[in-house]
Amino acid sequence: MSERRNGWAHVVLIVGSLVMLFPFAWQLITSLSTNAEVTSIPITIWPSSLHFENYATVFERLPFLSQFAISVVITLIRVLGQLLLGAMAGYAFARMRFPGRDAIFAVVLAILMVPPQVFLISQYQIVQSLGWLDTVAGIVAPGIFTAFSAFLMRQFFLGLPEELEEAARLDGANPFQVFWRVMLPLARPGLSALAVIGVLASWNDLLWPLVVATKPGQQPLSVGLATLQGQYVTDYPVLMAAALLACAPILIVFLIMQRRVIDGLAFSGMK
């Protein structure tokens, strides 16, 4: 099949991409406008001049870099924890036998179905009784344990061939060695996918860090962004500039891991 025969496919995909991209592009333009232009009617899409100083304002209003650093630390800990725990639990749910396995898994799944706000006050009190308020441990603790990670990894392991495991086992490896040396490397695409999803969730998490970390020096970027919104009046161009700055690193992570992500999510299709 030649590229020529894909002509219509390109037309459809380009139109689709434009639809996907349009609100984003507008956000970019908004971040370079004045507030008066953003709220003008009829709506002016293109600003009279480009106001790059909105980006400078972000750095003035927020301790952007330090909040960025805190976000990175929180996200790293949380995502690494999710990967390890999710992979181990997912492997056990997929390949090991133990009493009540499926019932336990169903309960884990059910957690995904409860509105996240339900957990807020209880988790706060638990973290408080652990003495973890205003600590990194408090911010990351609940987020390390996610039902989604176990679900995702279980689906992935279910799709991997069992022969390799068998071979390793016959070589005398214990289950942990089988998991660590054989299965985990095979699961790398799945882990990549989980990593991107986990990074995104942790990076944008707002309510929990807001409630748990009240000391200004400990707040992540998501909280900083939220403080840009006033009760009545919001400086939209600055908010947009900040939002774009904040999601830029995730986009870079995505681009780097793109191939892996796309391969990695493949497993999800299985079952």
């Binding site: 706060y124 309510l207 807001l210 409630v211 403080t227 006033g230």
Partner: peptide
Amino acid sequence: VVTPFAQYWTTLQTQASS
């Protein structure tokens, strides 16, 4: 400590409960 208005009362209530 600045807490955005949208989350201010939820935050206070959570803290008051504890």
